[in-house]
Design a protein around this nucleic acid. Sequence first.
DNA 1: AAGTGGTCTAGACCACTCA
DNA 2: GAGTGGTCTAGACCACTTA
Lengths: 250, 250
Amino acid sequence: MSESPVPHEPPIYRQIADQLRDKILSGELRDGDRLPGENSLMSEYGIARATARQALSVLINEGLAVPKRGSGVYVRLFKPIRRHGSRRLSREQWGQGRSIWEADTRGRPFIVDRVEVARERAPREAAVVLDTHDVWVRRRRYSVDDRPVQLATSYFPAELVEGSAITLEDTGPGGVYARLGDLGQAPAHFTEEVRARMPRPREAHDLSLPGGTPVIVVLRTAYTARGIPVELNEMILDAAAYVLQYDFDA
Amino acid sequence: MSESPVPHEPPIYRQIADQLRDKILSGELRDGDRLPGENSLMSEYGIARATARQALSVLINEGLAVPKRGSGVYVRLFKPIRRHGSRRLSREQWGQGRSIWEADTRGRPFIVDRVEVARERAPREAAVVLDTHDVWVRRRRYSVDDRPVQLATSYFPAELVEGSAITLEDTGPGGVYARLGDLGQAPAHFTEEVRARMPRPREAHDLSLPGGTPVIVVLRTAYTARGIPVELNEMILDAAAYVLQYDFDA
DNA sequence: AAGTGGTCTAGACCACTCA
DNA sequence: GAGTGGTCTAGACCACTTA
């Protein structure tokens, strides 16, 4: 009595999403092109509005499309900023330096925004790494071409930086690392821990992230030559705006 | 005649999602706990089924919850594997080695799966980096505890590795890097480019990714001491399963 | 003013899980 | 068998964009 094992056709909304995705990834639909709207999908496929919406929401949640209210749904672009980790070992010194993804920050400056400096009680992570509960915290937002791309929060052991320009909005020439140097605590070693996840609503708002965009979370710890941790920097990056590059030896 | 500028309350489904998210992030709901189902949300808030679903879909798309058909929606866990880039500069040599996110691959072995070895025409990226159109390709999947966590594809210049064990399923002791050494082409320098994005359906399937999980894409290029590129390795990582760690000097 | 996406209701049938 | 999530229909009102 067993029926033939049908390979189970995917639901309609998936099939439509798959077709549209193919058109995007194949280049038939390009950056900024308008996708068929809900009404055209309804009439073309003979489906209800909710089903058409579901199909489009798949692509939006994959970060391949972006909805604009009152206008339409549009193909999304990926023009990353290249962020170098270990620059010192720059491949230009020994390799041809060909990279897979083009990056194009070409001289366009970062704008720093929403600077906050405060003395606070350290959150759990910072307390563990910096081995103290009292920290100075520096928060800021970076934008390129009026587009916010990164949120950064730095933690410094309070007793170490108390009274220095690190506790001021303007840290002076060379920034916080130069000031740490003035204090005899110049960073010599770095560790970066890299994760990716979907943004919290707060992060999505502050970075103006459309749906379907993950964030890259970089936790960077700076150590002095003696191995004393002097800074913990948490960076939340718009994953659609960044490529991280690391170079190292075998 | 202008009305007072109402701060515009968020839609109901967002409010519900926000409440549930708070319970997850605060720890009130923990790994594996069951969230209120669609029916309970409908009666508790007096809303339609589609609205309840929409609220839950927010959390699912954020990777904070996972639906199980016929059972419920459950809080998701994050127990990452720590993947070291530049091990040689291991912080244990100079720092206390405190890390922010615990990792726990503690001796659990990687299982290698779905190995494919073939001679192919190089895709665009690989052709650019390796400077050839003929490549040997090695594909495989890695799993930990029966959970697939990584898809990897390596490309080698065909003329370089032709006839070596790199073209066989079993590459022998030491793997492909040892074989490259046998050929006098031992990798000495590495470049890694790191991105994050939502998975393609194929990737989501092969990695059994629930909704809301981004992938981390690592493109690793291996160069000989003379700067000749000898391998391009594209790794697709389940972002919920990994923390990448890089150590370097100022 | 017409068209678009955003939100929401009130139903329906299905496949699956679990007691 | 009762309950769950997955898919889908057929409506509705709204805010917004575009012309």
